[in-house]
Amino acid sequence: MITNEVKEAFVLDLMKKNTRVDSRGMLDYRQISVQKEVYENCEGSAMAQIGDTKVIAGLKLDVATPFGDRPTQGVIMFNAEFSPVAHPDFTAGPPDERSIELARVVDRGIRSAECIDLDKLYMEEGKVLGVFIDLFIIDHNGNLTDAAYLASMAALRTAKMPKYEDGKLIREERTAPLPVARDVVSCTFEKVGDKILLDAREEEEVSSSGRVTLATCGDDLLCASQKSGRAGFSRAEFESMIDTALAKRKELLKYI
């Protein structure tokens, strides 16, 4: 609590001087890297790093039962685990509202953009493939959302379909890549003082009064938005955040 107040005073003071903790521009990312196929057992995996933030996405494919109203479509499910190792505030136990929000915001963008053609996951009557993407946060130094999108997309892009025989998956025999139609990336903004900045570090998030995540799936196409935090954002602020998110898209796509 007290350390947060100290961090906030420090960050707000820097904002007044128009600078950031690491001297970045307000709309610059820290260094990004994405490592693909980090694990062999799961059908797809990736670790995204933005600055010191590390998020692992693991993708498992399972035989699943389709939803009653969509009997010929596969299913996608996202979950996020904030490991206690990632941040002193994270505790073991059932997912809290932050991890539920993160998983749902990533789900929203990837589902809305129709990244996965769910019709192609139909196997036979009553059987479809389920795509389970688990986001495992191991080092939280700010901007988990953008890292989670990068890790999820990279995991989707590297995922291989196992052979399907007699209603079962033969996981040792992986054949075709999982069909992915398009790439989704996100830009997450934080309002700190009266400034809006991209890719906040942890101390900047602590000082933030509001957050907006915008996910894009094309040159002029948005596929998810989430506003949280107490601050209000004006129409003009939204417009400029959308411009930034669309402009940064190319830069982010390089890492997937």
Binding site: R108, R111, S112, A113, V212, C217, G218, D220, L221, L222, C223, A224, S225, Q226, K227, F233, F238, E239, I242, D243, L246
Partner: peptide
């Protein structure tokens, strides 16, 4: 402000 589906700016 939340949004799903695909929309242009």
């Amino acid at each position: 402000l939340q949004m799903d589906g695909m929309l242009t700016k």
